[in-house]
């Protein structure tokens, strides 16, 4: 895939950092997946009104790694993802209990600055959710909201992210056209760019490929793989082959007695080649789920 620009092409301009976190992944050396916990979930449970969907999840997500969350539908994977940037707050009746930590930050604490949290934790949804205005405005809106108004900085940031998601050459002549005129795959890449524009540390991807055709899906997948090491990525997917291709770690969720639970968590190699749990083995071999 020539379209994908390696992340090293993104050159930060140190002079323009004032008032805005540098347009730069969090580390400056060669990106890699570190054995160091970036996110920690401790006894996390989620319920909608009285219906429990996730129980006692304890999980560590390593910095810079791609962690795939797999498992059958309705076992709380998406809820887990949405608790990480507190989107669960927006769902009526949703209650999250337990402990969630990102670096030193207590995510679930009442005092947590949600706008700041969501700036640090980007999210992509199953269906591309471009806003109904131009490509440029889609990318500018979050930047302006978080205090960047300098035109040249806006322009260069937009170009950088579009380069990074491989859209630049496709859209550079129609930045002011409506974003909804793009194809589904392009829209999803735009959404990714829109999340990247805020230089998040963590990316949450909720089945980002499932609504797309195979070719677009392949492009997105390669794109995600290229982000490995630069961001801590959590991806919910039903496509085990995809998980196998791109993930460093895999967490298997399963619905036991109607409540989602974490069954097994380990490196992709271990999960796919020597699963410890019977359920995992059955799931990855396609017997169940």
């Amino acid at each position: 895939m020539d379209l994908i620009q390696p992340t090293s092409h993104i050159i930060p301009d140190p002079d323009k950092r004032a008032g805005f976190r540098a347009w730069l992944p969090y580390q400056s050396t060669e990106p890699f997946c570190e054995p160091d916990a970036h996110l920690r979930a401790n006894n996390l449970s989620i319920a909608y009104h009285d219906l429990q969907v996730l129980r006692n999840v304890t999980l560590e997500i390593n910095r810079g790694c791609i962690t795939a969350l797999v498992g059958p539908s309705g076992c709380g994977k998406t809820s887990f993802l949405m608790s990480l940037n507190r989107l669960t707050d927006l769902i009526p009746g949703c209650q999250v209990s337990g402990h969630l930590q990102m670096n030193e930050l207590d995510i679930l604490a009442p005092t947590t600055d949600l706008l700041q949290l969501r700036r640090t934790v980007g999210m992509i949804f199953q269906k591309p959710t471009v806003f109904p205005f131009s490509i440029r405005k889609n990318l500018e809106l979050p930047l302006r909201e978080h205090g960047t108004h300098d035109r040249t900085l806006l322009q260069s940031t937009i170009e950088n992210v579009l380069q990074q998601v491989g859209l630049w050459h496709e859209v550079k002549d129609r930045l002011d056209h409506p974003a909804q005129a793009l194809s589904g795959g392009q829209q999803q890449r735009l959404c990714l760019a829109r999340a990247l524009v805020l230089t998040p540390d963590v990316l949450l991807l909720d089945e980002p490929c499932s609504a797309l055709d195979p070719i677009s899906s392949g492009i997105i997948e390669d794109l995600i793989a290229s982000l490995q090491g630069s961001y801590t990525i959590l991806i919910v997917t039903h496509n085990l082959a995809q998980a196998r291709r791109i993930a460093d770690h895999v967490a298997v969720f399963w619905s036991l007695e109607g409540v989602g639970q974490l069954v097994e968590h380990g490196s992709a190699q271990q999960i796919f080649e020597s699963p410890k749990e019977e359920l995992t083995a059955a799931y990855i071999s396609g017997i169940r789920g």
């Binding site: 927006l90 009526p92 005092t111 600055d113 949600l114």
Partner: peptide
């Protein structure tokens, strides 16, 4: 549909 049910959201002025 979506409510600001949380008592903790960071409202700006």
């Amino acid at each position: 549909m979506i409510s600001s049910s949380s008592n903790i959201s960071p409202h700006s002025k």
